[in-house]
Simulated scan of single mutants.
Amino acid sequence: MSCCTPDGSCSTTAAPAAGSGITTVYNVSGMTCGHCEAAVTKAVGALEGVTAVTVDVTGGRVSITSNAEPDDATVADAIDDAGYELVGRAD
Rank of each mutant, 00 (worst) to 15 (best):
T13H: 13
N27C: 07
G45S: 05
D81G: 03
S20W: 12
D71S: 10
T54F: 04
D77I: 06
G30I: 02
M1D: 15
H35W: 10
D56K: 11
S2E: 13
N27L: 08
G34M: 11
T41I: 10
V25I: 15
V25F: 04
V44S: 05
A73F: 07
L47T: 08
A14N: 12
V62K: 12
G60P: 11
H35D: 12
G34W: 05
V40F: 13
S20M: 14
G49W: 07
D91F: 01
P70S: 00
H35L: 15
A68H: 13
V44E: 07
A18G: 06
T32G: 04
Y26V: 00
T54Q: 14
V57N: 10
N67P: 00
A78M: 13
G30N: 05
V25A: 09
K42H: 09
T51P: 07
A43M: 11
A90T: 11
P16I: 00
A68W: 04
T13M: 14
D91N: 04
A90N: 08
E69R: 00
E48N: 02
E69D: 13
V28N: 12
C36H: 06
V55R: 06
M31L: 04
V25T: 15
A17F: 06
S29H: 13
R61S: 06
T12M: 14
A78E: 14
C33A: 04
V75T: 08
A78H: 15
V40H: 09
